[in-house]
């Protein structure tokens, strides 16, 4: 689990995003145990208090849950997991659109290019 963090966004936000990506891609499955905050801090080389904060936020968002003294787990709520996936896709598309719009490219051309690139990339 190597993550490169940028230095200007809050680390806890980047950690949450990392988890969302893992959930969206299925690397983390519903109900799967996740590392303790200490293990996470150690793995990601971040401050333990930051790891703690990320977990707290994720818990509040319902992404993870903790029962008693057991290790925290990824939510089993399919709806939440689905939302995470949608959210990430939407976010990526939004930023793409934001980037492409100022160039004034016709939509058809963009879609064509996307298709080409996407499959091209798959083929590699």
């Amino acid at each position: 689990m190597a993550v490169t963090f940028n230095k200007r966004d809050p680390v806890y936000v980047q950690v949450i995003r990392h988890f969302k990506e893992q959930i969206a891609t299925g690397n983390l499955e519903a109900g799967q145990e996740i590392p303790s905050r200490r293990e996470l801090a150690n793995k990601l080389k971040i401050n333990p208090n930051t790891a703690q904060r990320a977990y707290k936020e994720m818990e509040e968002e319902g992404l993870i849950f903790t029962e008693g003294n057991n290790p925290s787990k990824i939510t089993k709520d399919e709806k939440v997991i689905g939302n995470v996936r949608d959210e990430l896709i939407l976010e990526a598309v939004n930023s793409f659109v934001d980037a492409i719009r100022p160039i004034n490219v016709p939509l058809d051309e963009v879609v064509g290019l996307i298709k080409e690139k996407y499959t091209d990339k798959d083929g590699k």
Partner: peptide
Amino acid sequence: HLIDKVVILDNGVVVKSFNAEGVRENEGKS
């Protein structure tokens, strides 16, 4: 990414003291 709090010293005084995560969150700065 390891530290909580930063105390910047210059010329014999503390010129700024802040929470690292806080400054990233509130000001978008490293």
